[in-house]
Amino acid sequence: MTGLPKTTRKKLGLVTDLDICVGCHACAVSCKEWNAGGHSAPLTDTNAYGKDPSGVWFNRVHVFETQNEDETRTVNFPRSCLHCEQPACVTVCPTGASYKREEDGIVLVDAEKCIGCKLCSWACPYGAREYDADDGIMKKCTLCIDRIYNENLEESERKPACVIACPAGARHFGDLGDAQSEISRLVERRGGYALMPESGYEPVNRYLPPRPRKDRAGDTGTADHLDAAENAVDSSTFFEWLDKALTR
């Protein structure tokens, strides 16, 4: 199954809006919580209460700073599986445990087949594969496959846990293969981009870039200062302009 489907019927994926991501980790923790009891259960934590705790997380939030001659910025940056169209994480897998679903493009690991050779994690440039040493298998973002189709959930809740949780509304889910879908139009409108295009992995997920700052004169179409009225600070004449009758 390590062969890739020639095409997938859908390209389900996530879009993250870096312009409004406040880096709060809500998506990361809700992902951990949902998946700990879900399809990939458990997401083991080692040294949970000791030195150097570490655990399986499908979504992790970085913070970067950028700097050029004109400005420096801070950008919060969540990172999870991008459900690539040409994912070597799948093709390198020797067992067929790693596969890309033909019906929706989701990249999954079959827990029953995985031998835990870790090669797929070496093959993923995006760090989206998480080895659970205690289970001896590779785990990863499932795009919440056990939520998005789940008939036990209200239609409106059939979205990935991270999307539902994000307080800022910075995460979107949908079919990026359908140019008419809401999410594709959002990507179009906002110039959504793929990470590390040079990898050739053709990620499905997109990121919406931070918008330019509006911190310079003219950025908001406003004058850069107020013209002081005549006699503006002369207290003897300042109040003359108040003759307009104001009623309470």
Binding site: M1, G3, P5, G38, H39, G96, Y99, R101, E102, L108, D110, E112, K113, I145, D146, I148, Y149, N150, E151, N152, L153
Partner: peptide, 15 residues
Amino acid sequence: MALHQEQVDTSPKIS
């Protein structure tokens, strides 16, 4: 290929 694809339970009972 699709024949060997894992059968994922996409509608598990949540609680």
